[in-house]
Write a protein that binds this DNA or RNA. Structure first.
Lengths: 186, 186
DNA sequence: CGGTTATCTAGACAGCGACAAGATTCCTTC
DNA sequence: GAAGGAATCTTGTCGCTGTCTAGATAACCG
């Protein structure tokens, strides 16, 4: 904010925030390194120094996203009705951080094989798997994992894409939706 | 294929096919109008004449996609276990036409309010709603619609994103997943 | 204080999307 | 079959973009 001389202070953070802002309003396709530089008040090539690349910037966002998602999921672990709450947390994350969510699953925008990214991805996947194991009957839990993940992911994606009416609270709406899952005769 | 003089013959189709090819391998972000022109063997500005715009091109692809999806869904209507088969058809479409599917739900890439697009979208949504009504109990079927749609959409998205192991047949895999939905005590 | 390193600037390049003006061909209508 | 209008494609241009380079500035650390 103050008068700046040559060094920005925290350009890394500033560029990330600007990028999230742009993605949130106009989508990832609207990202321009030069525009982000302008927003941060630095020269056009400065951002590249921190992220190497446009894809590098989006990769960093994706990694942050997976870390955030992991936090959300972790809070749901151990709760009663754990699996459902994991789904709710998943959806809540997508709605709280739409820009992150939008980038995380667009592999063509990121350096898909960046080690940090695959690590962050695997970490969250593990959390989901754990949650499903609390209800799955044991024989083969993979379809159950897939079902839970697909439901939450699909709901979040459709919500974010605007395909779901936004008049209701998304978390509550998803709870209603999730009632149709795993309701076997007992 | 033959020697061409000024008029291409079917540049519209050629550009669409080239675009689908690019999207299929490198994603929609890799689309370049000039590259598509080169592939079709025409001058750099020719494609724009057919689609007006890069977004126009992607809009056309999305519209085609919704029409294709409607075909897939229509085939499933009336079958035994209709809702499940609708889901299978949804997933099958996404896997048969990944490039279309990838564009259809990326509103920032298309002219989102193009009349053809909203019409095509609404048409497919209607098909899905109809399928759910065959099982829903009546009081409020919207969560059920959402559940079915979310499950299929999420599965398709995750599959396409590479998040689901691809060793099994996707249709069969989704059938297994969908067994966890609407399995109320009877 | 001196040197190493991280950070940022400035300039250049090819490629891009979009626009405008003109060339060529098709197609309808007389 | 000719004329004229419409559709299609070319060519040239503009500002913008991402990325690369070399150089300037500042922070850090012995």
């Amino acid at each position: 904010m103050t008068e700046r001389s040559y060094h920005h202070g925290d350009l890394h953070r500033a560029v990330l925030d600007a990028a999230l802002d742009v993605i949130g309003t106009d989508g990832p396709a609207a990202i321009s390194m030069r525009d982000l530089a302008r927003r941060a008040g630095v020269s056009h090539a400065a951002p590249a120094h921190h992220f190497g690349d446009k894809s590098g910037l989006l990769t960093a966002i994706a990694v942050d996203g997976f870390s955030l998602l992991a936090e959300y999921l972790t809070k749901a672990v151990g709760r009663p009705d754990e699996l459902r709450e994991l789904g709710v947390a998943y959806v809540r994350f997508a709605i709280d951080h739409p820009a992150h969510f939008e980038v995380m699953f667009r592999r063509d925008l990121c350096h898909d094989d960046a080690p940090e990214l695959v690590a962050a991805r695997e970490r969250t996947a593990g959390l989901l798997r754990g949650g499903v194991d609390t209800v799955a009957t044991g024989d083969d839990s993979r379809p159950a994992v897939l079902a839970a993940w697909s439901l939450a992911h699909g709901f979040a994606t459709l919500w974010q894409g605007g395909s779901i009416e936004r008049d209701a609270d998304p978390a509550e709406s998803f709870r209603a939706v999730s009632r149709h899952l795993f309701t076997r005769p007992d």
